[in-house]
């Protein structure tokens, strides 16, 4: 199964980067990067199945597609930001990781602003 392959690969990558960390730390960092990319490509391929199911559910419930695309955008931003932040932290650069995280949070906030506005407008109408 896929999970066995990934875990074996992960352990192997860790061991190899352990060897390289003593002599050439940059190669161990490259190894971590390569391993993260492999797992992320697996994750993305699994996500495609998930998104097909979400589309089916969405067609049944007749939800407004705008909200669904907003949620998907947020998930995408968190995924990419998480990937970059963890890699930067792994390499030891906390500040860069913090900046990327801050930017990710801001962009999610900006995306979710229209929903907040619509919510407040509906409340205003009730008043």
């Amino acid at each position: 199964m896929d999970i066995i392959r990934i875990s074996i690969l992960g352990i192997l990558a860790v061991l190899l980067s352990m060897i390289l960390k003593h002599y050439k730390p940059e190669y161990s960092y490259f190894l971590n990067l390569g391993m993260c990319i492999c797992v992320f490509l697996y994750v993305v391929s699994k996500l495609e199945f998930l998104l097909d199911y979400v589309e089916q559910i969405q067609s049944l419930i007749h939800l407004d597609p705008v909200y669904l695309s907003m949620i998907l955008k947020m998930i995408g931003i968190t995924y990419v930001a998480e990937f970059a932040v963890n890699l930067c932290r792994d390499a030891g650069c906390q500040t860069i990781a913090g900046q990327i995280e801050l930017f990710a949070k801001l962009s999610i906030l900006i995306i979710s602003m229209p929903v907040v506005l619509a919510f407040i407008e509906t409340i205003e109408e009730l008043m």
Partner: peptide, 9 residues
């Protein structure tokens, strides 16, 4: 690229 296409970023 796949992330961008998948999530319509």
């Amino acid at each position: 690229e796949t992330m961008r296409k998948l999530f319509a970023l």
